[in-house]
Amino acid sequence: MQRFDRTERWLHWANATLVGVLVATGAVLYSGDLSSIFGRRALIEQIHVIAGLCLPIPFLLALPGRRGRALRRDLNVLNRFSADDVRWLRSRGRDHTVRLGKFNPGQKLNTAFVGAALVTMLATGLVLRFFGPFPLAWRTGATFIHDWTALALGLAIAGHIALAVGDPHALRGMLRGTVPESWARRKRPRWYEAEHRPDRPPEDGGVSGRKIRERAGS
C-alpha cells in the first residue's frame, strides 16, 4: 500500500542529497585529520555554502499546491501525539500493545528535532558566511551553535539511517513509495485501518469524488 507519494519521496531524497553533501564537506572543514587529507579548503567551503543555501528550496517546492497535499497531511499527522504515542514513548518503544498511526512517536520527535536543527544550521551558517552586518559576537555565537547542533544532528541522522537500514520494508516505503500490507498491519495498525476503512470522513471540509478516486487508486 502507498505510504509516501512522489513529492514526499522526491523531497526526502533531495534533502538527503543536500544534507549528505553538507555533512561530508562540513566534516572535512571541521576535522583536522580530514582537512589534512583533502586540503582545498576554499573549494570545500564553497560547496558547503552553496548546498546550505539550497537547503530550503526542495521543501518550498514540495509544500504548496496539489502536489504538496500528501506532504502537508503527513506533517499534520507528525504534529499530533496520541495517548498511544505517549505510552510508546514512556515504554521507550517496548510496549507492544501500543497501536501506532502512520508514524511512531520517535519519528515525530525526530522530525521536529531535525527540522529545528536544519533551520538553526541555516541561520547560524548564514551568519558565519555573511558576518558583515552583524556584531562579531554573533559570529562567535553562530560558530558555537553551528558546531554543537551539527554534532547532535549527525547523531540523529546516523540513528535515522541505522533504523531505516534495519527495516527494509520501511526503507522501501521511502524508495518506492509502497509498503507491504502485512508490515502496515503489524507496525502501523491505526494507519492501516484508517486507509482501509470504507467510510472515510471528508477531508478539508469535503473531498471531491476525484480525490476519493485518487486516494483509492493510490
Partner: peptide, 10 residues
C-alpha cells in the same frame, strides 16, 4: 488521513 486517531492527538 484526516481520520481516526491520527488527528486526535495533542
Amino acid at each position: 488521513m484526516r481520520i481516526l486517531e491520527d488527528m486526535d492527538g495533542t
